[in-house]
Computed example of a mutant assay.
Amino acid sequence: MIEFRTQLVAIHRTLSWNKQWPPQSTINLEDLPTARQIFDAEDLIVPEGKLISSNSETTLPASKLYCPAAWAARIPKGASVGGTVLTPDNQAVITSMESWQDHGPPNNWLLPISRRNHHLTGSCLDIGKLIWATNYFHFLIDALPHLAILGEAEWEPDWILVYQRRSKFVDAIFQKMGLDKKIVYTSIRERYEADEMLVCTMPNQRIGKYEYWGMNFLSQVFKPEKESKKIRLFIDRSGTAVRKLRNQAQMLEQLSKYNFVTVRLEEKTIQEQVNLFHNAEVIIAPHGAGLSNIAFCQPNTKIIELFSPEYVQTMYRKMAARLQLPWLGVLGKGEMLYPDSVKRNILYRDPSLNKDIILEPELIDRALAWAFEK
């Protein structure tokens, strides 16, 4: 596979107008002459968890995840293309434990880039890959904590590169942080050079390494407002395209006995979402980006995450472990809204990852019993 990808890179370079792209060599961030270690390495202890279904209960074993040290470096006369930072001699800077040799070049390395070269006066931070500017989870958890590293190093960028189209939540977050005048929205097909590129370790490497410094940073930025009374939240995904709760009306009837508040997060401001999660004692939600907001929960908030059988992604279980939040996974039945849809199969590499969820009443009762056990 690696050899095949290398051949693709060679073909791309031969056909491309830009013979310097993609770069042929790499350098690890910590090997740069100006590299500084900012945060120490640590372990994340994930306790046992439970995944329940209508006919079984599975114990997810405890584990220990290694979170590497965080580094930052300055690169005079550096550049960036599609989230990849380059040294003046055209070396790609590796910012995570995932090496270029192990995983091949990022997909955008095989895309042609335009002839548009831009120069930015001052220092520039590139906060990420393509999906990070359009997906709430990746922006909040993967992109923003770059600024925690630079803040600790006392380096302030003059410019911040954000990729792809503008997203309302991105604009709102940067405006809240007072950084909206520094943002440059760009595409993967443009090259940005700067007097100085600032580069730092990729936070949350390989989904599920929620470093303490990243989680602390988010709370400092958004400053959740604590209320005197706790609430119980059910996150309604009926307005989204995928992973909706098909028998939601039935579930809401069961939840009504426990005074749950039903919320559509897309109708709330970022700060309103932060405050809701911060003041919750129990949260029930289908798997989705909205659960990123558990980053703002107070310790011991109980998280009940709903799944379809084909897609059980336990990244929020790991985040809950970092934040000392009890977590329960609930496995319902999966059902495609348009099982034979050609469009759906084109849009999603694996359509089963986006199946809607059906929960039997007995399963909901078991989850509620777990949430309110004495």
Rank of each mutant, 00 (worst) to 15 (best):
M1R: 08
F4A: 12
L8M: 11
L8V: 08
I11Q: 10
H12L: 08
W17L: 12
W17V: 09
P22T: 03
L29P: 01
T34M: 11
R36F: 05
F39V: 02
F39Q: 00
A41E: 13
P47F: 05
E48Q: 14
K50N: 12
S54K: 04
N55P: 01
S56T: 05
T58N: 13
K64N: 13
Y66A: 15
A69T: 09
W71Y: 11
A72V: 08
A72N: 00
A73V: 10
V81C: 05
G82P: 06
T84Y: 01
T87I: 04
Q91A: 13
Q101M: 07
P106K: 02
P106L: 10
N107P: 09
N108S: 10
L111C: 10
S114R: 05
H118T: 14
H118W: 09
H118K: 12
H118Q: 08
H119I: 09
T121S: 14
G122R: 03
S123Q: 03
S123W: 00
I131T: 12
I131G: 09
N135E: 04
F137K: 01
H138W: 00
F139S: 01
L140Q: 04
L140A: 07
I141P: 01
P145Y: 00
H146G: 06
L147K: 02
L150G: 06
G151T: 05
W155H: 06
W155P: 03
P157Y: 03
D158V: 08
Q164G: 10
R165A: 15
R165F: 11
D171T: 09
I173S: 11
K176S: 13
K181W: 06
I183V: 12
T186A: 09
S187H: 07
I188H: 09
R189V: 08
R189G: 15
R189L: 11
Y192K: 02
D195L: 07
D195R: 04
E196Y: 00
M202A: 13
R206G: 11
Y210R: 01
Y212T: 15
W213L: 07
M215D: 05
F222K: 00
K226H: 14
K226R: 15
R237M: 06
R237K: 13
G239M: 03
V242L: 09
R246E: 09
M251K: 01
M251N: 01
L255R: 00
T262S: 12
V263G: 01
R264M: 11
E266V: 08
T269P: 05
V274I: 10
N275P: 05
A280N: 06
I283F: 02
A285Q: 03
P286T: 05
S292D: 00
F296Y: 09
C297R: 00
T301A: 04
T301G: 05
L306S: 03
E310W: 12
E310S: 13
T314P: 03
T314A: 11
Y316W: 06
R317H: 11
M319A: 10
A321T: 06
V330T: 04
K333E: 10
E335Q: 13
P339W: 03
P339M: 03
P339A: 07
V342E: 14
V342Q: 10
K343L: 15
K343H: 13
K343G: 13
I346C: 12
R349I: 14
P351D: 04
S352T: 15
S352E: 12
S352L: 14
L353S: 12
L353M: 14
K355D: 14
L359W: 02
E360I: 07
E362P: 04
L368K: 03
E373W: 06
